[in-house]
Amino acid sequence: MAFAYEGLDHVQLAAPEGCETDARAFFGERLGWAEIPKPEPLRARGGVWFQCGAHQVHIGVQRDFAPAKKAHPAFLVRNLGAFREHLRLRGIAVIDDDARAEEGIERLYVNDPFGNRIEFMERP
């Protein structure tokens, strides 16, 4: 094969117009992700970008926005129990996954302020 996949660059989550303040409060302040500047030519489109570990998460404006209820990104977390407590202390509703015992993987879900599902997981 003449090419090779290098990995994931970023995940984009859609949000409604005017989402920036709520996105900064949730992803930046409550989750603790660092905001990264968008390139100048893309700033007029709205939205906001964040760094999560080695990956970027782009919150992009979608005019006919509908939240992703099933499709979702999944982020690996070290010490999911401590992360769960971090979320609860910040008023973020946590949905625990009952299937973790079957797979040996612990996971939980949250909804962002726009209704998008986000998974956080820890491998044994």
Rank of each mutant, 00 (worst) to 15 (best):
V11I: 12
E29C: 01
D112C: 03
Q51M: 07
N116R: 01
A34Q: 14
P113G: 00
I118V: 15
D64Q: 10
P124R: 12
A68Q: 09
A14F: 09
G81H: 14
A14K: 04
D98F: 04
G32A: 13
D64P: 00
Y109F: 15
Q62D: 03
Y5C: 12
E102W: 13
L8K: 02
R43P: 05
G91N: 05
Y109K: 13
A82D: 15
H72R: 05
R45Q: 12
A68Y: 06
E119P: 04
K38R: 14
R100S: 15
M1W: 03
A93S: 12
P73G: 06
H86C: 00
E40T: 06
K70L: 14
W49P: 10
I59Y: 02
W33Q: 01
G60K: 12
G60D: 11
E85P: 02
G91M: 06
E119G: 02
K38V: 07
V94C: 09
P41M: 11
L13T: 08
F83D: 06
L80W: 12
D97A: 11
A34T: 11
E106M: 08
Q62W: 04
D22I: 00
E40D: 12
H86N: 02
H10N: 07
C19I: 05
V11D: 01
R107H: 10
R100A: 13
K38A: 13
R63I: 07
H58W: 10
P37S: 14
E35G: 01
V48F: 14
D98W: 04
P124S: 06
W49Q: 09
V94L: 10
A101Y: 13
D64H: 10
E102H: 10
G104W: 09
H10Q: 05
C19D: 00
Q62V: 07
V48M: 07
F3Y: 13
R117F: 06
R90S: 12
H58C: 02
L13P: 06
P16T: 04
P39Y: 14
E17I: 09
N116E: 01
V57P: 02
G7Y: 02
D9W: 13
H58P: 02
P37L: 11
K70A: 09
L108M: 13
L42I: 08
F26H: 07
